[in-house]
Nucleic acid binder design. Structure first.
Lengths: 117, 117
DNA sequence: CTGTATCCCCCTCGATACTG
DNA sequence: CAGTATCGAGGGGGATACAG
């Protein structure tokens, strides 16, 4: 969480065969406390409004949900669409970049399920 | 990181089709700053000694490496074998439970690679 | 070589109040 | 409804010294 780019690239030395990627960089993208939950919802349940997300995610505060959504937006994982209405409406959607994480979520899910046995 | 079991189970309400698992629980297991890096190495490069890991992981301190290894051991993701020698030798190995994470690492890796284009 | 024991900083996260 | 601003606590993580 506190490593910069350079550290990240050196974090695992060598060019071994498979699955070696800079974890600190990945943590930067999806390592926040609520990011994976938000992505999970937007990927598998589709577009949601701000308060919908707030209700779906137990325990999250307005501040943190905003923070995490802003970070995800900056990193191109979530897109934000504002409707000029009264009352205001803002919708959040998983970008293709985020949807590409689907396999990872499934792998994670399978792992988790297999553990519960 | 600070959510207990109950929070985790309620974090995502509903029983939607796929890939919904309690992220806080997972974060508890593999969410430490160095855990994914350690697991990556032990899974894909096999058993390592303490100082081998220390050298392979750039920037990690003795204290933190010990902490993360202890946590991984408690959670059954890493096994620790001590050889009664002088000088002492301790080897760390990924358990089957950790090896089951291989698919997730690959998915993560593929995602990362596809992003670099 | 492989750890433990302290001390402490910083950064994340949470609570609260206020706004368009 | 969907935010922003501010303040503060807590704990994960780092540095250092010491030990078996």
């Amino acid at each position: 969480m506190a490593l910069d780019r350079k550290d990240a690239e050196n974090a695992v030395r060598g060019d071994e065969p498979s699955a070696l990627c800079p974890m600190p960089d990945i943590a930067q993208l999806i390592g926040g406390k609520w990011k994976l939950i938000v992505l999970q919802i937007l990927i598998f349940q589709g577009t949601k409004r701000f308060n919908e997300l707030r209700r779906l995610i137990d325990g999250v505060t307005q501040t943190m949900l905003t923070n995490q959504l802003r970070a995800l937006e900056r990193d191109g994982l979530v897109s934000r669409k504002i409707y000029a209405e009264v009352p205001p409406r803002v919708e959040y959607t998983a970008t293709p970049r985020a949807i590409a994480l689907t396999k990872m979520f499934h792998a994670m899910h399978e792992w988790w399920e297999s553990e519960q046995s």
